[in-house]
Amino acid sequence: MQKKWVPTPVEIAKKPDYILSGHRLCAGCAAPVVVKLTLKALPNPENTVLVNATGCLEVATTIFPYTAWRRPWIHNAFENAAATASGVEAAFKALKKKGVWKDEEPTIVVFGGDGGTYDIGLQSLSGAIERGHKFIYVLYDNEAYMNTGIQRSGSTPFAAATTTSPAGKVLPGKPEWKKPIGFIVAAHMNAYVATVNPFYWQDFVVKVRKAFEYDGPSFIHAISTCDRGWRFEPVLAMRISKLATDTCLHPLWEFDPETREYHITGQSLYLAKNPDKIVPVEEYLKLQGRFRHLFKPVRRDDLINAIQNRVMKEWKYLLKLAGLES
């Protein structure tokens, strides 16, 4: 794509906020950081329409009569954010053809949580991507249904305790592995797909800018820590977010639909070149109450190792996709 953009903190901090203070997301929630970075990455955020699936972000930013959104915004339902975005995009296209809308068509940005994306909204998302609507779908992935009280989703990682996958005498939290949503979306072959981490904000905004520049649908998968659901002190949010990438649990990559190439980016590219710097998953797991049962009352090396092995297997798969390992 274009010449490499290296955003500076000044450049990002200077841009106005389009999600405002006074929202009622929990202290330390990463979702507003995901939103903020996404909108600051756009070259013309004034010409943007936002679509939000049902979820924490939607609820806590629009408790009537208040709204935290300084851009036109629509929440329709849980499972249909991508379909709603299709309609918004199509309407502006038609209004433009008819000469009713005279400017550039607005950028459509969708925010959906993991429930609305991996699970109930997957069909709507797949349909909208297949149809090739131009929108940027941002998944803020906090790995469970946090809005309803921490129930497991298709995104909840193996062994994580949630209120519907509790750690019991027989089951060690969620028995299934996380769904590889990024690859599923990339398999449509017409979407720009990228994983991002708000801690690695430069890599984040550069990818959103690429999504903006790509003439077609794009999908940004952001890990989004949840101190309530993951059970850690809010102060640790960004530290844990960083570890998600540093352990290769949430590696940073992108899929370019034009070349059909996978690229590993940012910190993950550094780790690909310096594998000794990969942090063991234990460092990430032990900070979070949802994995407490892996350490207490007895240490479950079997489970910790299973996670570590799986992460390395998936990391190797990604290295192969990106042509960094044969």
Binding site: V10, S21, H23, G28, P198
Partner: peptide, 15 residues
């Protein structure tokens, strides 16, 4: 460095 501004989830760090 302005990182606190960038990471603040409440847009509560002003520059």
């Amino acid at each position: 460095c302005l990182l606190c501004n960038i990471y603040c989830p409440d847009m509560a760090i002003k520059v």
